[in-house]
Amino acid sequence: MNKTAKIYIAGHTGMVGSAILRQLQADGFKNIVVRNSKELNLIHQEAVRDFFEVEKPDYVFLAAAKVGGIQANNTFRAEFLYDNLMMASNVIHASYEYNVTKLLFLGSSCIYPKFANQPIEESSMLTGALEPTNEPYAIAKIAGVKLCENYRRQYGCDFISVMPTNLYGPNDNFDLKTSHVLPALLRKFHEAKEADSPTVEVWGTGTPKREFLHVDDLASACCFLMEQYSDGAPINVGTGTDLSIKELAEIIKEIVGFKGSIVWNSNKPDGTPRKLLDVSKIHDLGWRHQIELVSGIESVYKTRFIPT
C-alpha cells in the first residue's frame, strides 16, 4: 500500500477497527477515511453506495460487525444474522462496484464446525455443524467469506478473508450481558474484589479450551496480510496455543488480586469444547504474534480498571 492511498476502515470505533486505525497511523498512513454508525449506517445499501461514490477508497478494512458473547448471540439471533449479513454484503458489493484495489474482511473462528479437528485448519469451514449458540453470527461471517471468494472468482477482485481467534484488548466490551469471556471475567473479579465478595460465579464447567489474541497483534496481522496475502481461501490469525477457561479464570483472579473462591455454574452453557486455530499458514508467510497472554491481560486490566 502506498502511504498516500485512501484507506477506509469500516468499524473504526470498535475494538478491531480502532486497533487497525492505530496500526496504520503508526505505520505512516495519513489518508484514512472513517465514519461512525450515526454518520454511515452500513446496513443501508443506498447509504453505503453514496459513501463509496463520494470517497472512492483504494483499500478497505471491513471490521464492522455486531458482536457479543454466548448470551448476546443466543438472545439476539435475528439481529446477529441480519445486521452482519447486510454489512458484509453492502460493503463488499460496493467495493466491487467502485473498483477498490483490495479489501480485507474480518471473519471469526466461530465459522468452523463445533467439533472440528484441532487445531482447526482453514479447510474445515462447512465440513460440520456449527455451535448452536452462535450459529446466526457464524452463518453471516461464512457468507462474507464466500462473497469475497466469489467476487474474486467471478470478477477478479482482490478480496481476502481473515479469521481471528478470540480477541481482547483496548476498547473491548465489558458489559456482562453482551461481552465475551475474558473481559467479562476481568470485570467480575474486579467488582468482587472491590466489594470484598467471598466468591465469583463463572458460567459453565471451566473445561472448554480457548485461544486468545491481543487485538494489537491482530491489527499487525491485518496490515501484514493486506500487503502479503492474496487468495480466495480464508487465513487464520492466532497464537497457536490455548488454555482452559478454568486456567484463564485463575490467571485473571491472580492479576486482579481477588482472594475469594470461584464458583462454577454448570447449568450455564460451555459453548464449543475447544477452538484452537491452525496458524501454520500465516506463520509460513512470516508473521507471528508478539504480545503474550499474561502481560496482555495485565495491560488491559491496568488501563481499564486501575485509576491513573
Rank of each mutant, 00 (worst) to 15 (best):
N2E: 08
K3N: 05
K3P: 10
K6S: 11
I7H: 04
Y8K: 00
H12G: 08
T13E: 10
I20Q: 07
Q23V: 06
Q25K: 09
G28F: 04
I32N: 07
V34T: 13
Q45V: 04
V48F: 04
V48P: 01
F51D: 00
F52G: 01
E53W: 10
E53Y: 11
P57S: 03
P57K: 01
Y59D: 03
Y59E: 07
A63T: 08
A63D: 05
A63H: 08
A65W: 00
G69W: 07
Q71E: 14
Q71P: 14
T75Y: 14
F76Y: 12
R77V: 03
E79S: 14
Y82Q: 15
N84C: 04
A88V: 03
A88R: 04
S89V: 02
I92M: 00
I92A: 10
I92G: 03
Y96C: 09
K102E: 06
L104F: 08
S109V: 09
Y112C: 11
P113S: 13
F115C: 09
A116H: 07
Q118L: 04
P119E: 06
E122V: 07
L126S: 13
G128C: 01
L130S: 02
L130Q: 08
Y137M: 00
A138G: 10
A140W: 11
A143W: 13
K146A: 14
E149R: 10
R152S: 14
G156F: 07
C157M: 00
S161Y: 12
M163R: 13
P164M: 02
P164N: 02
T165H: 01
G169A: 09
G169H: 07
N171S: 15
N173P: 12
K177E: 14
S179A: 15
V181I: 10
L186H: 13
L186Q: 07
F189I: 03
H190R: 08
A192V: 11
T199G: 11
V202H: 03
G204Y: 11
T205G: 14
K209H: 14
K209C: 15
R210M: 05
L213A: 00
V215S: 08
V215A: 05
V215C: 10
L218T: 04
L218R: 04
A221S: 09
C222S: 14
C223S: 15
M226H: 09
E227W: 12
Q228N: 15
S230W: 08
D231A: 15
P234A: 05
N236T: 10
G238H: 07
L243N: 08
L248T: 02
I252P: 12
E254S: 14
I255N: 03
I255G: 06
V256I: 09
G257C: 02
G257R: 06
F258Y: 02
I262G: 05
V263E: 07
V263F: 10
W264I: 03
W264T: 06
N267M: 13
D270R: 05
G271Q: 00
P273R: 03
R274W: 11
K275M: 15
L276Y: 08
L277W: 12
K281T: 07
G286I: 01
G286N: 02
R288V: 13
Q290E: 14
I291L: 05
G296A: 02
S299I: 01
V300M: 02
Y301L: 04
K302P: 12
P307A: 02
T308M: 14
T308C: 13
